[in-house]
């Protein structure tokens, strides 16, 4: 586990932790970038992201988990983030860093909650994303914001004394963090269409969540339903660590299989290239 700052040449210094592979597996370098959730969900799931990173590294992958701008130890404040593109650019820098470190040709993006949404948006702008893992992804930005706003309103309403938080034409405070109006508008308009992302993808979502997934090429998409408890919209667990060891195990196993397929694909490609070279 090696903590680092990267992207220092740009305005936004980003913090990340590199988990180097504990053993090398196959001839294809494996690289994963973990995209955490936003806001308080990021803090709650820090431990879970660390655990999945460690296990993937144990399986032979270079894993980078990092903090979005305005989050964790990365520079700035979340209120300074004016557009989702800022975070997509962060992820691009993270992909570049892990590719440089691992010498991998492509990376897997593993996103949790809105991290999955941002991963899918970033994948559309890159040619070097090999696959996506969406863990309880936020599919509908407006619905997501509504859920957070409901929790926030309830928390403020039940405060020991009458109180209020900032909510004007520039900023709105939601569950501890002030967000810019322009960013909120973008989140509100976000609809995650995983079916349009033409990449191998693993979706891990709750059985209890009424969210259907499909893909124009069904073999590209695998959906796993878990019986984990829905926990993101309950005020009483706002500061409780979010841990899902059983689901983590399932994800790690499936990610290993996805990398095996990549390895086989690359081997086939290499053999075909050799055959072509011999023929020529």
């Amino acid at each position: 586990m090696k903590p680092i700052f990267f992207n220092q040449n740009n305005e936004r210094q980003l913090y990340g932790v590199h988990h180097p592979p504990r053993r090398s597996k196959g001839s294809t370098a494996q690289a994963v970038v973990i995209c955490p959730p936003l806001g308080q969900e990021y803090i709650r799931s820090h431990w879970a992201c660390k655990l999945v990173a460690k296990q993937l590294a144990r399986g032979g992958a270079h894993v980078l988990r990092f903090d979005w701008s305005g989050h964790g130890n990365s520079s700035g404040y979340v209120g300074e983030v004016a557009s989702l593109q800022n975070w997509i650019d962060d992820l691009a820098a993270a992909i570049d860093w892990v590719r440089e470190e691992s010498k991998a040709d492509s990376v897997m993006l593993l996103g949790l909650r809105f991290g999955a949404t941002l991963a899918a948006l970033a994948a559309e702008q890159r040619q070097d994303v090999y696959s996506l893992v969406g863990w309880e992804p936020v599919v509908d930005g407006a619905e997501h914001l509504q859920s957070l706003r409901t929790m926030h309103a309830r928390m403020v309403d039940l405060w020991a004394s009458k109180t209020s938080t900032r909510n004007d034409d520039q900023f709105e405070e939601i569950l501890g963090f002030e967000l810019s109006r322009s960013l909120l508008n973008e989140i509100e308009q976000t609809k995650l269409e995983l079916g349009d992302v033409y990449l191998p993808q693993l979706i891990v979502d709750l059985e209890s969540r009424d969210q259907a997934y499909s893909h124009i090429e069904p073999s590209l998409q695998r959906t796993i339903r878990t019986d984990d408890e829905a926990a993101w919209d309950q005020l009483q667990t706002l500061e409780t660590a979010w841990l899902r060891p059983q689901t983590t195990r399932v994800i790690v196993k499936n990610v290993a299989e996805m990398f095996q397929r990549l390895e086989r694909f690359n081997q086939t490609g290499t053999e075909q290239t050799q055959q072509m070279a011999e023929t020529l």
Binding site: L158, W159, L235, Q236
Partner: peptide, 23 residues
């Protein structure tokens, strides 16, 4: 009065007392 207001509201909306945000 706010103490009782919050206690009643929490009961009505089903938020457990022990780990509530405030109160």
């Amino acid at each position: 009065p706010r103490f009782w207001r919050n206690a009643i509201k929490r009961r009505v909306i089903g938020e457990p007392l022990a780990s509530e945000a405030a109160g």
